[in-house]
Simulated assay, not measured.
Amino acid sequence: MSKLNIREADRLEVTILVDNYTDMLVTESNDICRRPHLFLPHVFLAEHGLSCLIKVFSGVEEHTILMDAAVTPACLFNNAKLLKVDLSKLEAIILSHGHPDHFLGLVELLKFIHEEEGKEIPLFLHPEAFLERRINIPAVGVPSTMPALEEAVLKASGAIPIKSKKPVPVAGDLIYTTGEVERTTAFEKGFPWAEAKIDGNWVADPFRDDQGLVIKLKGKGLVVISGCAHAGIINTVQYAKKLTGMDKIHAVLGGFHLTGGIFDPLIQPTIDEMRRINPDYIIPMHCKGWKAINRFAEVMPEKFLLNTVGTTYVLEGEP
């Protein structure tokens, strides 16, 4: 496999527009983690969704993209307004995978961009993000169908879908998608209750569309950003290392999908492997789960950062 030709970034800023957790009293900031200061009646909204504004810099060059678009436009636009983020200026949107907690706000966002700027915007995603999907919980007995992406609706709203199973460069080659993530761990086996309709049949969802982002920070190593990491957060990080030929991980942030009783057995092996990877910073978000986030905080306190809606992570490369 040829290595990705990722350009080195001087600085990376990741602002969490939407996540599951908000706390306006978490205000402690430092050079890496910058918390907003809001006062009532202004409040950030949280929901079971994810949306991250990503800015990457190289010299005087600057690019702004969005990964995922949350569940509700109300949540996404409220938080962007409070953070003074102009979503109409985005140059690209990346979808981590085809689950509605990552795309239901997308159509309204696309329409807003088109109305404000009169432009269409590239939307990077895997072809299987359009699959029909459902959750089939054995204790419930009746599958629950999930909303699905519709390509025609996306195009009519101003998206230019760019579908790829392989890594794709964005932001002037300063960011790459991972494309389909190789599955190499013994314990990351996906989401047992998730099903997808493939070739006319409902089967266990393989989540081939699950992808992350990779950034090479000058002199610091790789930054890996996940959506839900249905492919496994360890698989995702290890695949990013393989794609780039780099071993050093500076930061891992995003959803780790360790919430719920069926994922409890995965928490400790995930932490064990993350300790071996030894990133400088670990920032679990979205579907990480209460038990997992507390275990990461306990076991990796010098590396762990608690995420809240509105936080901006500023990662600087070497001068």
Rank of each mutant, 00 (worst) to 15 (best):
I283G: 05
A156H: 07
A251Y: 03
T308W: 00
R35I: 00
N278G: 03
F187Y: 15
I121T: 14
L38M: 11
W202A: 05
M24K: 12
T184K: 13
C287M: 11
V314D: 13
S144C: 10
A159F: 02
D209F: 05
V140F: 12
V26A: 12
T270E: 09
V224I: 13
H63T: 02
A74L: 15
K216E: 05
S157Q: 04
I215D: 01
I233T: 11
V223M: 02
E150L: 11
A152E: 15
D68F: 01
F187E: 08
L106C: 05
P279I: 08
N201V: 15
D101N: 14
E195L: 11
T236D: 10
S51P: 11
F103N: 10
P161F: 13
D31R: 12
V237F: 04
G59A: 10
K241I: 04
P143L: 08
V142F: 12
N294Y: 04
S88C: 10
M67S: 07
P265Q: 03
P100D: 03
A80R: 06
V56Q: 09
F103M: 09
N79L: 03
R134H: 11
P265Y: 02
F103H: 14
P147V: 08
A159M: 05
R35W: 00
Q211K: 08
Q211A: 12
W193V: 12
T312V: 09
G289S: 12
L131F: 12
D205M: 05
D101P: 05
N307G: 14
N30C: 08
D68E: 11
E61W: 02
D210Y: 03
G141W: 07
G141P: 11
D247P: 01
I175C: 03
A159S: 06
N307P: 02
P169I: 10
M246E: 15
E61Y: 10
V203E: 09
I198R: 00
L12R: 09
I113A: 07
L83D: 03
N5G: 00
I65R: 02
P192D: 07
G118A: 10
K3I: 09
G179F: 01
K111F: 04
V43T: 14
A159D: 04
K119R: 14
L12I: 15
K163W: 03
E180C: 07
F112P: 02
E62W: 00
D31W: 01
I267A: 05
G212V: 05
A196M: 06
I65P: 06
D264Y: 13
L258Q: 02
K89H: 05
V224W: 02
D173E: 13
L4G: 00
G158F: 02
E61N: 12
I249Q: 03
L110T: 03
T244V: 04
S88I: 02
I293F: 01
L53I: 11
